[in-house]
Design a binder for these strands. Structure first.
Lengths: 203, 203
DNA sequence: GTCGTTTTCGACTATATGGTCGAAAACGAC
DNA sequence: GTCGTTTTCGACCATATAGTCGAAAACGAC
């Protein structure tokens, strides 16, 4: 929809908080009333946008990762899906990242947390059967966090490097090394009992 | 200073954009005029806060990493410094993360980029002599991005996991595995020529 | 204790912006 | 073409908040 697209653009440009409804409606070339006819508030659009985005991402992950039984392959594919997904969708990456940043705050936008937790949940579900050991939920969650965090962490930092314009290309070239190292990371962390021990920390 | 501390707290609570000057001055228990006597604007405090934070972090990194010649040890120490630094400094981590999120936007706060680039620069300078191969600057930058991104990426995601309250503890337990895998990541990426090749992508 | 300087104060201004609302257009069934 | 429903419109309201400013307090040198 015209409004959602305009919103996506403006949010990616100004950030969730500083984006103005007026600017969204202007870009979408509709009256302000139209906006409030379709959405109940600013929070509402943000929620819809992020939920849609993560929904798509999850679908892509599920589709491409189904049936993979090898940890390294799974991670490689997962990373690959992220890269391909965000490739040429810069606005969506910013949205994803901004949404995540909101979550570190005390009062983030209503309903932002749920889609992110679902997203993590799906990653966990894919990881679980492929990892040798039987892991408790919280440990799995930590691994899912590591996977998602590593990918977006690198991506987000690479971004502020001005001389390096073709991030996707660069990222793709690092993908293999990253998948291997993540797989080893998981294998080692699991085997060493670091995760099982962390268990006692507070689960 | 009272004002800086109040500002830090409020920014970490509400986010850079939504934090109100009024709330900062109230918390600091000073008049509004006092704020504007010390800082020229909201941007000004943000800049000062982030620059101070990253300066401290860089100092800590330099101190602890000086003289380490082994890649794995260097990474382990680097990660360790980050963990220790942000341990019990939740507000500062949020600030760091929010600041980074701002950088993905078109018009981020004036002067936020510089301290982050300096921070990356220091990481690069430590990494460079320890890596076997001679790498071009942009490739080094990518590695620095990976290190910083991985650490904060995991940290930030782990945060939204509600059942897992002792993040620092958990993180500490994963530290070893992470350092090894990052070291391998770098070694492999360098050896495989992925970074050198990425060179052609746009350097 | 006086006087110049530094620092503090909070009422006030200017403005920006989320959200409302009643009227009008567009649509579509008949 | 008429009438009820859906959708659009943008002027308008209420409010929040960054930043100003003139006056007063605090300080400190002598």
């Amino acid at each position: 929809m015209k409004l959602l697209n305009a919103a996506r653009t403006v949010f990616a440009e100004k950030g969730l908080d500083l984006a103005r409804i007026d600017e969204i409606t202007e870009r979408a070339d509709v009256g302000k009333g139209t906006f409030y006819y379709h959405f109940s508030s600013k929070e509402d659009v943000i929620g819809e946008l992020i939920a849609g985005l993560l929904g798509e991402l999850v679908t892509a992950i599920e589709e491409r990762c189904a049936g993979i039984v090898n940890l390294r392959d799974l991670l490689d594919t997962m990373i690959g899906v992220h890269i391909e997904f965000f490739s040429n969708r810069w606005e969506d990456f910013v949205l994803y990242f901004q949404g995540r940043a909101e979550l570190t705050l005390q009062d983030s936008y209503e309903g932002l947390e749920t889609p992110f937790l679902e997203y993590l949940g799906h990653i966990e579900d894919l990881l679980a059967p492929v990892i040798g050991h039987q892991l408790p939920r919280p440990a799995l969650r930590r691994l899912a966090c590591a996977v998602a965090g590593f990918v977006s962490g690198y991506y987000s930092f690479a971004v502020i490097s001005p001389q390096d314009e073709d991030i996707d290309e660069t990222f793709r070239s690092l993908r293999g090394a990253m998948a291997s190292s993540l797989a080893r990371f998981i294998t080692e962390a699991t085997a060493s009992g670091a995760l099982a021990t962390g268990e006692g920390a507070r689960v």
